[in-house]
Amino acid sequence: MNDDSQNISPDDGRVADAVDQNWVDRYAPRGLRPYLRLSRADRPAGTWLLLLPCLWALALATATMGGWTAQTLWYALAATLGSFLMRGAGCTWNDLSDQEFDAAVARTRSRPLPSGQVTRRQAYLWLGGQLALSFAILLSFPWAAIWMGVVALIPVAIYPFAKRFTWWPQVFLGLAFNWGALLFWVAVRGTLEWPAVTLYLAGIAWTLFYDTIYAHQDKEDDALIGVKSTARLFAERTPRWLMLFLVLAVVLALYSVISALIGASVLVLVIALGGVWAFGTHLWWQLRHLDIDDTDVCLHLFRSNRDAGVLLAGALSLAAALPMLMV
């Protein structure tokens, strides 16, 4: 296993798996850097993975309502801001829960809490600030969506502990990370409907796909400290399981798009289905290049899921805009 933490200077506080030349380490005020690192702002892939299911549902629901409006464009901005804040809050909570585990793993021991850059009290205050700002944004939504946002805290709270009692902690991550698909559908449509549920399930299958790849980076350390994961559970059978998750994600996304847009124009439906095809093709490309014993490859493929999700979000956003463009 590569131990990039050996290259981290104790003075600069940079986290081992941070993105090279990231904005936090280069531009953020020095006093704020430990807190932004605690929120994983130096590793933006997770924010994208939280945001994209929100955009999928928002765009698909908007497509059923005749196109983008000022309100749905605000929801898109709120999704972006909220994803940054809630991903940061979730990571802060995760690190508070996992401080001892993180200190025992090469890739994570340079994080702010185990490395001593912030105290637990400071981390709790930072967590509270992020949650407060997130809730302030949520208050601009309809009441049904606000309640959906409050309920989302349940899987977020449980996830850090899942690796202690189940081999499938990635399921709990999927429940938390894809909740935005339900929330933003309800915000636009006013009620929870099957296209949102199946899109949510597609997102969970996608999370099982990408986070199993991610977990292969830590499987040796996880085995030593007794942390469970699908990477350890599947071991050499990982490619077969990932193929199953790929098929589930694509089939469920197809059902969601078709059931939502059954009455739309052929061109709108074709564009949306093209996005699902591009999404599935990207996952297949990842599977073809996977090497579960190469941590650099696993990290690269995990991060590339941003591009897979963007392909679907872009197609659905275009499908939602098409009725307006054709006027």
Rank of each mutant, 00 (worst) to 15 (best):
A196I: 02
A223H: 10
L182F: 12
W185R: 09
A162L: 08
V156P: 00
I154H: 03
E220T: 07
T238E: 10
F161E: 14
W167Q: 14
L242E: 10
A157C: 12
P155C: 03
A196M: 04
Y214A: 02
L183D: 05
F177K: 08
K163S: 14
R237K: 12
R240C: 03
A176I: 08
E236W: 11
V151G: 05
E220K: 03
I225R: 14
Q170V: 12
K228D: 08
G203K: 00
V227A: 15
A152K: 08
A205V: 01
L224W: 12
L182E: 09
W179E: 02
V150N: 09
W194T: 13
G149P: 11
I204D: 05
T166E: 14
T230G: 04
A152C: 13
A187G: 09
A196R: 01
I154D: 06
D211C: 02
T191K: 14
H216S: 00
T212H: 03
H216F: 08
W179V: 07
R240A: 14
A162V: 13
F161Y: 15
Y200H: 07
D218V: 04
A176Y: 05
L199S: 10
Y214M: 03
P160W: 09
V171W: 05
V188K: 08
L244K: 10
T191E: 15
Y200D: 12
